[in-house]
Protein backbone atom coordinates (compact mmCIF):
# COMPACT_ATOMS: atom_id res chain seq x y z
CA UNK A 1 0.00 0.00 0.00
CA UNK A 2 1.45 3.35 -0.97
CA UNK A 3 -0.37 6.16 0.70
CA UNK A 4 0.68 9.28 -1.10
CA UNK A 5 -1.48 12.13 -0.02
CA UNK A 6 -2.24 11.92 3.67
CA UNK A 7 0.46 11.43 6.28
CA UNK A 8 0.43 7.86 7.55
CA UNK A 9 -1.44 7.61 10.80
CA UNK A 10 -2.82 4.73 12.70
CA UNK A 11 -4.00 3.28 9.42
CA UNK A 12 -0.77 1.78 8.17
CA UNK A 13 0.42 -1.57 9.41
CA UNK A 14 3.82 -0.04 10.14
CA UNK A 15 2.75 2.45 12.78
CA UNK A 16 2.57 -0.06 15.56
CA UNK A 17 -0.18 -0.76 18.03
CA UNK A 18 -0.39 2.69 19.56
CA UNK A 19 -1.64 5.65 17.62
CA UNK A 20 -1.32 8.43 20.15
CA UNK A 21 1.29 10.10 18.03
CA UNK A 22 1.83 13.85 18.35
CA UNK A 23 -0.02 14.46 15.14
CA UNK A 24 -3.28 13.09 16.43
CA UNK A 25 -6.02 15.66 16.68
CA UNK A 26 -7.74 15.95 20.07
CA UNK A 27 -10.96 14.46 18.81
CA UNK A 28 -9.18 11.59 17.12
CA UNK A 29 -7.26 10.74 20.27
CA UNK A 30 -10.35 10.85 22.39
CA UNK A 31 -12.58 8.68 20.32
CA UNK A 32 -10.36 5.73 19.70
CA UNK A 33 -6.72 6.40 20.38
CA UNK A 34 -5.99 3.25 22.35
CA UNK A 35 -7.89 0.21 23.47
CA UNK A 36 -9.79 0.94 26.63
CA UNK A 37 -11.66 -1.43 28.87
CA UNK A 38 -14.94 0.16 27.94
CA UNK A 39 -14.13 0.07 24.23
CA UNK A 40 -15.29 -3.45 23.64
CA UNK A 41 -18.59 -2.88 25.32
CA UNK A 42 -19.32 0.32 23.48
CA UNK A 43 -18.35 -1.39 20.26
CA UNK A 44 -20.71 -4.21 21.00
CA UNK A 45 -23.47 -1.70 21.59
CA UNK A 46 -22.44 -0.06 18.35
CA UNK A 47 -22.80 -3.41 16.64
CA UNK A 48 -26.31 -3.72 17.97
CA UNK A 49 -27.09 -0.29 16.60
CA UNK A 50 -25.70 -1.04 13.14
CA UNK A 51 -27.61 -4.30 13.09
CA UNK A 52 -30.64 -2.23 13.93
CA UNK A 53 -30.00 0.12 11.02
CA UNK A 54 -29.61 -2.82 8.67
CA UNK A 55 -32.91 -4.17 9.90
CA UNK A 56 -34.64 -0.83 9.45
CA UNK A 57 -33.42 -0.49 5.88
CA UNK A 58 -34.39 -4.08 5.15
CA UNK A 59 -37.91 -3.21 6.26
CA UNK A 60 -37.90 -0.02 4.22
CA UNK A 61 -36.89 -1.97 1.13
CA UNK A 62 -39.23 -4.90 1.63
CA UNK A 63 -42.40 -3.47 3.15
CA UNK A 64 -43.51 -1.22 0.25
CA UNK A 65 -43.03 -4.10 -2.17
CA UNK A 66 -44.85 -6.60 0.01
CA UNK A 67 -47.55 -4.03 0.60
CA UNK A 68 -48.07 -3.64 -3.14
CA UNK A 69 -48.13 -7.41 -3.58
CA UNK A 70 -50.72 -7.91 -0.84
CA UNK A 71 -52.77 -4.95 -2.05
CA UNK A 72 -53.07 -6.61 -5.44
CA UNK A 73 -55.26 -9.25 -3.81
CA UNK A 74 -57.58 -6.87 -1.97
CA UNK A 75 -60.88 -5.31 -2.85
CA UNK A 76 -61.07 -1.57 -3.38
CA UNK A 77 -62.74 -1.06 -0.04
CA UNK A 78 -60.12 -3.01 1.84
CA UNK A 79 -57.40 -1.11 0.04
CA UNK A 80 -58.51 2.22 1.38
CA UNK A 81 -60.30 1.37 4.62
CA UNK A 82 -57.44 -0.61 6.14
CA UNK A 83 -54.23 -0.22 4.14
CA UNK A 84 -52.24 -2.39 6.55
CA UNK A 85 -54.60 -5.36 6.95
CA UNK A 86 -54.46 -8.59 5.00
CA UNK A 87 -57.35 -9.20 2.61
CA UNK A 88 -60.30 -11.19 3.96
CA UNK A 89 -60.24 -13.33 0.84
CA UNK A 90 -57.41 -13.32 -1.68
CA UNK A 91 -58.84 -11.96 -4.91
CA UNK A 92 -57.05 -13.56 -7.82
CA UNK A 93 -59.74 -12.12 -10.06
CA UNK A 94 -57.98 -8.74 -9.72
CA UNK A 95 -55.29 -10.15 -11.98
CA UNK A 96 -57.79 -11.39 -14.52
CA UNK A 97 -59.46 -8.00 -14.58
CA UNK A 98 -56.12 -6.22 -14.91
CA UNK A 99 -55.05 -8.48 -17.77
CA UNK A 100 -58.29 -8.23 -19.76
CA UNK A 101 -60.30 -5.18 -18.78
CA UNK A 102 -57.44 -2.85 -17.91
CA UNK A 103 -55.56 -3.97 -21.04
CA UNK A 104 -52.46 -4.95 -19.09
CA UNK A 105 -52.34 -8.12 -21.17
CA UNK A 106 -52.16 -6.10 -24.37
CA UNK A 107 -49.47 -3.80 -22.96
CA UNK A 108 -47.55 -6.76 -21.65
CA UNK A 109 -47.45 -8.45 -25.06
CA UNK A 110 -46.51 -5.18 -26.78
CA UNK A 111 -43.64 -4.81 -24.34
CA UNK A 112 -42.49 -8.38 -24.88
CA UNK A 113 -42.45 -7.92 -28.66
CA UNK A 114 -40.50 -4.66 -28.50
CA UNK A 115 -38.05 -5.71 -25.79
CA UNK A 116 -37.34 -9.17 -27.20
CA UNK A 117 -36.91 -7.78 -30.70
CA UNK A 118 -34.71 -4.92 -29.60
CA UNK A 119 -32.64 -7.08 -27.29
CA UNK A 120 -31.97 -9.68 -29.98
CA UNK A 121 -31.07 -7.02 -32.52
CA UNK A 122 -28.87 -5.15 -30.04
CA UNK A 123 -26.93 -8.24 -29.08
CA UNK A 124 -26.46 -9.31 -32.69
CA UNK A 125 -25.44 -5.94 -34.11
CA UNK A 126 -23.55 -4.89 -31.01
CA UNK A 127 -21.43 -8.01 -30.86
CA UNK A 128 -20.75 -7.88 -34.63
CA UNK A 129 -19.53 -4.29 -34.45
CA UNK A 130 -17.56 -4.91 -31.26
CA UNK A 131 -15.90 -7.99 -32.71
CA UNK A 132 -14.72 -6.18 -35.83
CA UNK A 133 -13.51 -3.19 -33.81
CA UNK A 134 -11.66 -5.40 -31.34
CA UNK A 135 -10.10 -7.81 -33.80
CA UNK A 136 -9.17 -5.98 -36.99
CA UNK A 137 -6.87 -3.05 -37.65
CA UNK A 138 -8.22 -0.88 -40.42
CA UNK A 139 -8.29 2.82 -41.22
CA UNK A 140 -11.12 4.45 -39.34
CA UNK A 141 -11.30 1.83 -36.61
CA UNK A 142 -10.69 4.36 -33.84
CA UNK A 143 -13.07 6.89 -35.39
CA UNK A 144 -15.91 4.38 -35.41
CA UNK A 145 -15.10 3.22 -31.90
CA UNK A 146 -15.06 6.72 -30.46
CA UNK A 147 -18.21 7.63 -32.37
CA UNK A 148 -19.95 4.82 -30.48
CA UNK A 149 -18.36 5.78 -27.17
CA UNK A 150 -19.42 9.41 -27.62
CA UNK A 151 -23.03 8.25 -27.71
CA UNK A 152 -22.77 7.22 -24.07
CA UNK A 153 -21.85 10.69 -22.86
CA UNK A 154 -24.84 12.60 -24.27
CA UNK A 155 -28.21 12.57 -22.52
CA UNK A 156 -31.11 11.19 -24.57
CA UNK A 157 -32.96 14.43 -23.91
CA UNK A 158 -30.62 16.26 -26.26
CA UNK A 159 -31.74 14.04 -29.14
CA UNK A 160 -35.41 13.90 -28.22
CA UNK A 161 -36.83 16.54 -30.56
CA UNK A 162 -34.91 15.60 -33.73
CA UNK A 163 -35.39 11.91 -32.96
CA UNK A 164 -39.15 12.36 -32.96
CA UNK A 165 -39.00 13.87 -36.46
CA UNK A 166 -36.52 11.28 -37.77
CA UNK A 167 -38.89 8.52 -36.69
CA UNK A 168 -41.87 10.46 -37.99
CA UNK A 169 -40.28 11.00 -41.42
CA UNK A 170 -39.58 7.29 -41.66
CA UNK A 171 -43.26 6.63 -40.92
CA UNK A 172 -42.25 4.61 -37.89
CA UNK A 173 -44.10 6.47 -35.14
CA UNK A 174 -46.28 4.20 -32.98
CA UNK A 175 -44.94 1.03 -34.55
CA UNK A 176 -43.08 -1.99 -33.26
CA UNK A 177 -40.23 -1.67 -35.81
CA UNK A 178 -39.78 1.99 -34.93
CA UNK A 179 -39.46 1.28 -31.23
CA UNK A 180 -37.25 -1.75 -31.80
CA UNK A 181 -34.85 0.18 -34.05
CA UNK A 182 -34.67 3.17 -31.69
CA UNK A 183 -34.19 1.01 -28.58
CA UNK A 184 -31.43 -0.85 -30.39
CA UNK A 185 -29.72 2.29 -31.63
CA UNK A 186 -29.59 3.75 -28.11
CA UNK A 187 -28.39 0.49 -26.57
CA UNK A 188 -25.57 0.11 -29.11
CA UNK A 189 -23.03 2.60 -27.66
CA UNK A 190 -22.67 0.86 -24.34
CA UNK A 191 -23.01 -2.63 -25.83
CA UNK A 192 -20.28 -1.95 -28.39
CA UNK A 193 -18.05 -0.28 -25.81
CA UNK A 194 -18.38 -3.12 -23.32
CA UNK A 195 -18.11 -5.99 -25.79
CA UNK A 196 -15.13 -4.45 -27.63
CA UNK A 197 -13.27 -4.54 -24.34
CA UNK A 198 -14.47 -8.07 -23.77
CA UNK A 199 -13.48 -9.42 -27.19
CA UNK A 200 -9.99 -7.96 -26.72
CA UNK A 201 -9.48 -10.15 -23.67
CA UNK A 202 -10.29 -13.38 -25.52
CA UNK A 203 -7.45 -15.50 -26.91
CA UNK A 204 -7.06 -15.46 -30.69
CA UNK A 205 -5.33 -18.79 -31.27
CA UNK A 206 -8.47 -20.85 -31.75
CA UNK A 207 -9.90 -18.37 -34.25
CA UNK A 208 -6.62 -18.23 -36.19
CA UNK A 209 -6.42 -21.99 -36.37
CA UNK A 210 -9.97 -22.12 -37.67
CA UNK A 211 -9.19 -19.60 -40.41
CA UNK A 212 -6.18 -21.67 -41.48
CA UNK A 213 -8.44 -24.72 -41.58
CA UNK A 214 -10.62 -22.85 -44.05
CA UNK A 215 -13.39 -21.59 -41.80
CA UNK A 216 -15.01 -18.41 -43.08
CA UNK A 217 -14.77 -15.19 -41.08
CA UNK A 218 -18.48 -15.33 -40.31
CA UNK A 219 -18.08 -18.92 -39.19
CA UNK A 220 -15.26 -17.92 -36.87
CA UNK A 221 -17.44 -15.22 -35.34
CA UNK A 222 -20.63 -17.21 -34.90
CA UNK A 223 -19.18 -20.59 -34.05
CA UNK A 224 -16.04 -19.75 -32.11
CA UNK A 225 -15.91 -16.18 -30.82
CA UNK A 226 -19.55 -15.71 -29.78
CA UNK A 227 -19.63 -18.85 -27.60
CA UNK A 228 -16.35 -17.78 -26.01
CA UNK A 229 -17.79 -14.35 -25.26
CA UNK A 230 -20.83 -15.76 -23.46
CA UNK A 231 -20.10 -14.33 -19.96
CA UNK A 232 -19.75 -10.83 -21.38
CA UNK A 233 -22.82 -11.25 -23.55
CA UNK A 234 -24.90 -12.37 -20.58
CA UNK A 235 -23.90 -9.36 -18.46
CA UNK A 236 -24.63 -6.84 -21.16
CA UNK A 237 -27.85 -8.61 -22.17
CA UNK A 238 -29.17 -8.41 -18.60
CA UNK A 239 -28.20 -4.76 -18.43
CA UNK A 240 -29.98 -4.03 -21.71
CA UNK A 241 -33.04 -6.11 -20.86
CA UNK A 242 -33.67 -4.24 -17.62
CA UNK A 243 -33.06 -0.90 -19.28
CA UNK A 244 -35.45 -1.70 -22.12
CA UNK A 245 -38.17 -3.21 -19.94
CA UNK A 246 -38.06 -0.11 -17.72
CA UNK A 247 -37.90 2.42 -20.56
CA UNK A 248 -40.51 5.16 -20.33
CA UNK A 249 -39.27 8.27 -22.11
CA UNK A 250 -38.82 6.82 -25.61
CA UNK A 251 -42.24 5.17 -25.91
CA UNK A 252 -43.86 8.24 -24.36
CA UNK A 253 -42.49 10.37 -27.19
CA UNK A 254 -42.54 7.90 -30.08
CA UNK A 255 -45.57 5.75 -29.39
CA UNK A 256 -48.87 7.55 -28.87
CA UNK A 257 -51.24 4.87 -30.18
CA UNK A 258 -53.05 3.50 -27.14
CA UNK A 259 -53.20 0.00 -28.62
CA UNK A 260 -49.44 -0.04 -29.01
CA UNK A 261 -48.80 1.20 -25.45
CA UNK A 262 -46.00 -0.47 -23.57
CA UNK A 263 -46.40 -1.46 -19.92
CA UNK A 264 -44.72 1.65 -18.58
CA UNK A 265 -47.05 3.89 -20.58
CA UNK A 266 -50.08 1.76 -19.87
CA UNK A 267 -49.50 1.76 -16.12
CA UNK A 268 -48.88 5.49 -16.02
CA UNK A 269 -52.11 6.07 -17.96
CA UNK A 270 -54.00 3.60 -15.78
CA UNK A 271 -52.79 5.29 -12.62
CA UNK A 272 -54.59 8.39 -13.84
CA UNK A 273 -57.65 6.67 -15.29
CA UNK A 274 -58.35 4.38 -12.34
CA UNK A 275 -59.08 7.50 -10.37
CA UNK A 276 -62.25 7.68 -12.45
CA UNK A 277 -62.89 3.98 -12.95
CA UNK A 278 -62.20 3.37 -9.26
CA UNK A 279 -60.65 -0.04 -9.77
CA UNK A 280 -57.44 0.41 -7.83
CA UNK A 281 -56.99 -3.24 -6.98
CA UNK A 282 -56.73 -4.07 -10.67
CA UNK A 283 -54.07 -1.39 -10.98
CA UNK A 284 -52.06 -3.05 -8.21
CA UNK A 285 -52.46 -6.40 -9.92
CA UNK A 286 -51.16 -4.68 -13.06
CA UNK A 287 -48.12 -3.40 -11.18
CA UNK A 288 -47.36 -6.90 -9.98
CA UNK A 289 -47.73 -8.33 -13.48
CA UNK A 290 -45.45 -5.66 -14.94
CA UNK A 291 -42.80 -6.15 -12.26
CA UNK A 292 -42.89 -9.93 -12.49
CA UNK A 293 -40.36 -10.45 -15.34
CA UNK A 294 -37.65 -8.27 -13.82
CA UNK A 295 -38.24 -9.49 -10.28
CA UNK A 296 -38.24 -13.14 -11.40
CA UNK A 297 -35.04 -12.59 -13.35
CA UNK A 298 -33.50 -10.98 -10.30
CA UNK A 299 -34.58 -13.66 -7.85
CA UNK A 300 -33.31 -16.39 -10.16
CA UNK A 301 -29.98 -14.75 -11.04
CA UNK A 302 -29.36 -12.17 -8.32
CA UNK A 303 -25.58 -12.17 -8.64
CA UNK A 304 -25.65 -12.00 -12.43
CA UNK A 305 -28.17 -9.16 -12.38
CA UNK A 306 -26.06 -7.28 -9.87
CA UNK A 307 -22.93 -7.59 -11.99
CA UNK A 308 -24.96 -6.96 -15.12
CA UNK A 309 -26.14 -3.64 -13.74
CA UNK A 310 -22.75 -2.76 -12.28
CA UNK A 311 -21.10 -2.96 -15.70
CA UNK A 312 -23.23 0.05 -16.57
CA UNK A 313 -20.99 2.10 -14.32
CA UNK A 314 -18.16 1.65 -16.80
CA UNK A 315 -19.85 4.30 -18.85
Amino acid sequence: MTDTTTPPRSAGPDTGPRSDSPGDSPSGAGSGGRPRPGGRLSRRLGTGATQGFLGVWALLAAVPLLWALVSAFKTNNELFASPWKLPATWHFDNFVRAWTKADIGEYFLNTVVVVVGALALTMLLGSMAAYVLARFRFPGNRVVYYAFVAGMTFPVFLALVPLFFVVKNLNLLSSYPGLILVYTAYALPFTVFFLTGFFRTLPTSVAEAAVIDGCSQEGVFFRIMLPMAKPGLVSVAIFNFLGMWNQYLLPLVLNSDQHKYLLSQGLAALAVQQGYANDWSALFAGLVIAALPVVALYLALAKKVQTGLSVGLLK
Binding site: A58, A61, N246, L263, L267, A290, Q306
Partner: peptide, 18 residues
Protein backbone atom coordinates in the same frame (compact mmCIF):
# COMPACT_ATOMS: atom_id res chain seq x y z
CA UNK B 1 -27.58 -7.17 -0.11
CA UNK B 2 -30.06 -9.13 -2.15
CA UNK B 3 -33.01 -7.44 -0.46
CA UNK B 4 -31.54 -3.92 -0.53
CA UNK B 5 -30.97 -4.24 -4.27
CA UNK B 6 -34.55 -5.21 -5.06
CA UNK B 7 -36.04 -1.68 -5.30
CA UNK B 8 -33.33 -0.79 -7.80
CA UNK B 9 -34.49 -3.22 -10.45
CA UNK B 10 -38.12 -2.09 -10.44
CA UNK B 11 -39.17 -0.04 -13.48
CA UNK B 12 -39.36 3.67 -12.60
CA UNK B 13 -43.04 3.82 -13.55
CA UNK B 14 -43.93 1.01 -11.16
CA UNK B 15 -41.97 2.71 -8.40
CA UNK B 16 -43.79 5.94 -9.15
CA UNK B 17 -47.30 4.45 -9.07
CA UNK B 18 -46.48 2.50 -5.92
Amino acid sequence: QKLFFLPHILPAVITAVL
